[in-house]
Design a protein around this nucleic acid. Structure first.
Lengths: 153, 153
DNA sequence: AGTGAAAGAAGACCGCT
DNA sequence: AGCGGTCTTCTTTCACT
């Protein structure tokens, strides 16, 4: 699964992460190459799944999403059927931005972005009515100190 | 700070979040408008800071980032000077993808993406040598169930 | 605030090296 | 795998409604 990329590929990815809107010529100039090789490599990395998606990052607060919670979940259920239902519930809820299954005594962590505390409560009530969880701790973010999707290539 | 956007603006943002690479014509068609108004609105939302950045999402595992930790931090220090140093340390470290200051007895949560467990340890040792923290708990992700940056507009 | 046209830039492809 | 050229498509602007 680990793609073999050379230094030029990595430089291209750094540029795309920084600004996916810039032209091929500009990227080529910055990485010390020219248009065609950059284009061929980008195409290959898209097809190979290294580049997954091109998107925009929005200002959550400006759009009214003023609350962000990290949710720690412990469960006693570990059967396949329960897990499938739980995963599907998370995937279906758009306010869940991240969901990870963990090692250790906490089983799952979620990042949930909602308009306000009331919206979080609605989410929480809906979730626990759908699937049985043993223990839930919600951590409320007071301040987003840093947020990036860029990998440190 | 809350930008006032109409239904068309929101539809455009949904499309841009889904795929920022598509053409204006295609976006216009999907949202039921035409090229110029879409372009004017996108421009305005960029200038107004609603649209922050255009970027690509990469496959972390394909690029060798196989470990992801959520780090819960408690500290006894709450002086301004300590906090400034701590924040700067987090911002300077590229493996820290997210950092939030929390309400409650846990003070901070980090999301740290690294190549392997050893790289996490190196990060951890470097961090605690720079700033004094009272208690650190690392939660290791076994599986990324869901990951999105899209806001549910 | 939306329409239609028009110029300029950038993307996508190809044959050659 | 990179170079240069070409065709095509999109972006960006503007005068009009």
């Amino acid at each position: 699964m680990a793609a073999r990329l050379d230094e030029l590929d990595r430089k291209i990815l750094v540029e795309l992460q920084r600004d996916a809107g810039q032209s091929l010529d500009e990227i080529a100039r910055r990485v010390g190459s020219s248009k065609t090789p950059v284009w061929n490599r980008v195409k290959k990395m898209r097809e190979g799944g290294v580049i997954r998606q091109q998107t925009v990052l929005l200002d959550a607060e400006a759009l009214g999403f003023e609350a962000c919670f990290f949710v720690l979940i412990r469960t006693s259920e570990h059967e396949a059927e329960w897990q499938a239902a739980f995963l599907q519930a998370l995937r279906d809820r758009p306010e869940v931005q991240e969901a990870h299954r963990l090692a250790g005594d906490i089983d799952y962590i979620l990042k949930v972005r909602v308009r306000n505390a009331r919206a979080y409560d609605a989410f929480y009530q809906a979730l626990i009515s759908e699937v049985k969880v043993h223990n839930v701790t919600a951590l409320l973010s007071m301040e987003e100190i840093k947020s990036t999707v860029a990998l440190p290539l």
